[in-house]
Write a protein that binds this DNA or RNA. Structure first.
Lengths: 349, 349
DNA sequence: CTGAAAGCGCTAACAT
DNA sequence: ATGTTAGCGCTTTCAG
């Protein structure tokens, strides 16, 4: 069942004008007499005329839509990012087409190709946990297709990039743990391939070293699927808790890692923060409701979404090829709550 | 910076053929000789030819994209619904364009018009809390535009509708509270305009009456924004707690109502479930992590998304106008957890 | 000031 | 088996 819309031709026929006159009248061209304009405007208003954007796209060779590739929209951080993206996109007359990789490299490739073939004007990408090979993106990029990376970026490609200062976020969190008196701080990290993982572990390590602690790689466990699967988190934590120097604090470096970490501790009746403290990167809106309330490093997700969209649209609309790519680094925020508070018997040192 | 893609014309020129021959070869038409096909296929493979979907859309008068209108994607229920929608849409070669009303009627109207003008082939709608006037949707629907409602439906329009059995969900939750020994069960409800609110309150009332309790309208408070604003929830609860028969249990009828309700109790140091029990409609993935863990009525969101998308695409692709509209009602699931467990001193009766 | 015609990429009816 | 042409809706020269 097709939905037949009114066209410029219908207006022309009804008013005894040519399509070009109608077109010009609608765009308020100076070449059209006021009376004709008046007539055209009135009539198209009456029949509720709307230009066909597809015809426009064909002509202008642009679709006014942008694609987004994220791992999962059912994730606070990404849904907040998407809110930011949409707010700018709609303002500028673009619509957005969202696709999810579910942390699968294969799906990321398929989605990229699908989006690219759907005539989007540009792409906002946060790569999947599994992604190592970047040909699917490089191909597009090499042909001049606008791509902006956010959050999980890729150093090998020259594009705009928007991230949070992951190093600093992890540094602050780790230092907070140290200052609160925790001795053995382990890291529950995401995929080793991800930029964010490397950056966060970098900050973790530096904070330890700056505070005279020794950095031990054994205190790091990676979860390839970024904590999306409960089992990988359980395995990782089991490993960590088996260490000779048993951790008394965990730094979880992503949303799902953090929540699945809490889930594991709840399941195994390990008390937070009495037995082990937990701080995580998280944009959950509910961290205050958990019990104990959760200490987190929070990212300005909405702003990140806005910023990368602005950069992308700017590039799409730029007259000449963009050569100067920006790397915008936003500050994370540390929220200290109960999950990293030493119990009263052992006050902070 | 435009991104110039390869067209059928380039292939034709390179191979000394006409565009129609190339077009036919690509679509494997029987009229084309095997040799020509071979050549065309090879060459287009080589230069990585992709048909321009916009040109196709213009020709076929369909865009192979569907629009979604929801209040908020940063809401578990809706992000799960969207996952379900995407899974089917991508399978069938459609892409989805999501827009958020943020519970504002005005934005819903703007988004509807925007989407409609972007040549989508159909629309999946869950109306905003504020929506009463339906002209923006009726206009489209009257012109034969495919619309499917889900979750927050609208009785005045003859379309496919996919919902959960809200009446039953609320009935079960209320009965569970009664059976657990709670005496004064109040309802924290969403906007009075919404179908789901009416259905859920219907179930609440019936369960009370079936169990010999009297139904008191004073025990219901509505939040126009569905709990999106903390203040409206705080006000509503303050009212409820002032009642002469102070509630010992709350039935919250939506995700945000539930979480903001917990937030209020946490803030005011009201103990759940000792001072007051809480059960809510919620699709949060974290209800088990809350403390006390939260009893909920959960909706099969993913399946709802899949189902409404199937119905929509079926209607879009139907040869003749669809007259028989379906109303699919999926079962909700009750999960009993700690937030509605009477403390040990007063065991269940 | 207005109209005719071409063209965006593709398909299909109509030649040949 | 292949080519020519028209047309999808719209804008934009180019001609009056």
């Amino acid at each position: 069942m097709k939905f037949e819309a009114v066209t410029i031709k219908d207006i022309a026929r009804a008013l005894g004008l040519s399509t070009s006159t109608v077109s010009r009248a609608l765009r308020d061209s100076y070449e059209i007499s006021p009376e004709t304009k008046q007539k055209v405007l009135e009539y198209s208003e009456k029949i509720n005329y709307r230009p066909n954007p597809i015809a426009l796209s064909l002509k202008e060779k642009r679709s006014r839509s942008i694609g987004i590739i994220v791992c999962e929209i059912a994730n606070s951080f990404f849904s907040q990012i998407i809110n930011g993206i949409e707010s700018i996109a709609y303002d500028k007359g673009y619509n957005v087409i969202i696709s999810q990789s579910h942390e699968s490299y294969e799906r990321e490739v398929i989605n990229t190709q699908y989006l690219a073939s759907r005539s989007i004007d540009g792409l906002l990408v946060s790569v999947s946990s599994e992604t190592q090979d970047l040909d699917h993106l490089k191909n597009l990029h090499d042909r001049g297709f606008p791509i902006v990376f956010f959050d999980r970026i890729v150093e090998e490609m020259q594009t705009h990039k928007v991230i949070v200062d992951n190093f600093q976020g992890a540094y602050d969190a780790t230092e907070h743990l140290i200052k609160s008196g925790y001795q053995n701080i382990a890291a529950l990290a995401g995929s080793e391939y991800l930029s964010i993982t490397k950056e966060r572990l970098g900050g973790y390590r530096k904070a330890l070293e700056d505070n005279g602690r020794k950095f031990d790689p054994a205190c790091i466990q990676h979860c390839l699927h970024g904590g999306m699967l409960y089992d990988e988190v359980e395995n990782a934590l089991t490993q960590l808790l088996k260490l000779k120097t048993k951790p008394d604090a965990i730094l979880a470096s992503a949303d799902k890692l953090t929540t699945n970490c809490l889930r594991y501790f709840k399941k195994t009746k390990i008390k937070v923060p009495d037995d082990v403290a937990v701080i995580g990167f998280s944009n959950l809106d509910l961290t205050d409701l958990l019990s104990p309330s959760l200490s987190v490093v929070r990212q300005p997700a909405y702003e990140m979404g806005q910023l990368c969209t602005e950069l992308l649209i700017q590039q799409i609309e730029s007259k000449r090829p963009v050569k100067d790519f920006e790397r915008r680094v936003l500050p994370p925020q540390l929220f200290v709550r109960e999950s990293t508070e030493k119990c009263k018997e052992n006050p902070k040192n």
